[in-house]
């Protein structure tokens, strides 16, 4: 007598099951990774002490309720903000103790003394559009990044952005340490000094 074989299971519906699972994952998941402008907020201090900042070391950027950009009290297009910020930060007008040997700016005595002293002050109104604010933030950050890239290129032959990327992928301990030191050095040459005041109401 011939042995009977077990009947084979019909696999025709396997595709349907797989499709069902696929559609579930398509609907319930997202593919995007989040990215954005990273910032650090200042800690809340009960009694703020007034710092003595020379007027020439302050770069006033204002955004009013009509989304108009005012730089040092004068209206400006957002496209021009980056070059204006670079000109201010890279000015290096100071002498003696405050002189800046790596600055390539105009060395105007009416503008900032040293990148370490230069402060960008951003004031916005409560009615300012968030998108406009982000555009201004982006331009200011890119001014710093440009200057840091330039110095990193000069000192180490590699841009600042590349160095940061390499640090993330670095495997070797020594490599990580030197990269960290270099990044710190560049950051101290052009420290990000961006002050944000409380939003003001302007009517």
């Amino acid at each position: 007598m011939a042995r009977r074989l077990a009947p084979s299971v019909n696999a025709g519906s396997m595709a349907d099951i797989a499709f069902l699972l696929l559609i579930f994952f398509l609907v319930s998941t997202t593919i995007e990774t989040d990215s954005g402008i990273s910032r650090k907020l200042p800690p809340l201090i009960d009694d703020p002490t007034t710092a003595d900042i020379k007027k020439k070391n302050l770069f006033r950027v204002e955004l009013n309720q009509l989304n108009e950009l005012l730089v040092e009290g004068k209206p400006m297009k957002i496209g021009d903000l980056k070059s204006a910020a670079i000109a201010f930060l890279d000015n290096g007008g100071g002498s003696g103790n405050l002189s800046c040997d790596y600055c390539k700016g105009q060395r105007d005595t009416q503008s900032s003394d040293n990148p370490n002293k230069a402060i960008v002050s951003l004031i916005n109104s409560r009615e300012t559009n968030y998108a406009t604010y982000i555009a201004v933030q982006n331009e200011l950050v890119s001014a710093y990044t440009d200057l840091r890239n330039r110095e990193a290129q000069r000192l180490y032959g590699i841009s600042f952005v590349e160095m940061k990327k390499n640090l993330k992928n670095a495997k070797d301990k020594n490599e990580t340490r030197t990269l960290r030191e270099r990044i710190k050095k560049i950051q101290s040459m052009y420290p990000e000094k961006l002050s944000e005041a409380e939003p003001v109401n302007q009517y």
């Binding site: 954005g36 998108a131 982000i134 890119s142």
Partner: peptide, 9 residues
């Protein structure tokens, strides 16, 4: 909004 000076989270 759109920006280009971004870092990944």
């Amino acid at each position: 909004p759109v920006a280009d000076q971004i870092e990944k989270l």
